[in-house]
Amino acid sequence: MALLEVRNLVKHFPVRGGLLNRVQGSVHAVNGVSFDIKRGETLGVVGESGCGKSTLGKTVIRLHEPTSGSIRLEGQDITSLGPREMMPFRRKMQIIFQDPYSSLNPRLTINGHIREAVRFHGVADAGSIDDCVDDILLKVGLRPEAKHKYPHEFSGGQRQRIGIARALSVRPELVVADEPVSALDVSIQAQVLNLLTDLKQEFGLTMMFISHDLKVIEHFCDRILVMYLGYVVEELHAEDLDEQARHPYTRALLGANPVDDPDERRPLTVLQGDVPSPYEPPSGCPFVTRCPLAMVRCRQEMPPLEPKEPDGHPAACWAVEPKSAPAD
């Protein structure tokens, strides 16, 4: 059984306006996303800005209320639990944020941040809370003496480590990492990624890793969801990314990735135009406005996420041959 099962998850944000402040429409941030994460697995979610990947991550751990669909953690439906019933699940699902500056309360010491989490969830008994805090700080590579300092006394990388320590201090099963390295320098990114790799091993974490950086995702994750305008357009194993990606959007993302060989020349597939507004999504395939392979059918019908040739991983595109039923 998968640790997390998400089925047809939809999140729409209402847009209000006008004289009587009526709901005028909605921003379709997540549109019917389904996926599983197995225990110990790391799922990458990739896509450009505004494609709904952060909203997906936050909806999965119930920071946003889902509009419809279901979320099951360890087989239990948590989609519409009230705050009190959510409590045991809150401990099991934690989040690491992108911005290390706004993710820490400037008026609380590091001790204050981690201690309140540990005590609130009764992770350690009253006598050993201090040891527990010191322990988690050591594990993320900070000196325990630093715990009496305030967030502004740390660098960005250190703050991100504190954010990780806060998330891990309650011993979660699932961690949603919402672009945890995007705001850091490249050298610090590597340190934090290595730290996350180590911690994943040590705590046996299951992770949902959200990023716009294909290289980081490919390096860090087992499986990848590619999102576009709130839809999953392709789902594949990380090792297949370079060779097997079929969806034109995934190919475009791969094409935009810089390569580390200055002599290598390859054809550039540069996407034209901007992402359409999620307030007024195009009819048919969401990618139709920018797709190099767009056909008449694409404007009329939404392609289903179905297995494609040759290896059978799912992609949502009319232009890609579906995997034929195995001949017996």
Binding site: R90, R91, I95, D99, R166
Partner: peptide, 10 residues
């Protein structure tokens, strides 16, 4: 985000 983090902690 620190308010969201507190919400996520329950």
């Amino acid at each position: 985000e620190y308010v969201q983090a507190a919400t996520a902690l329950g």
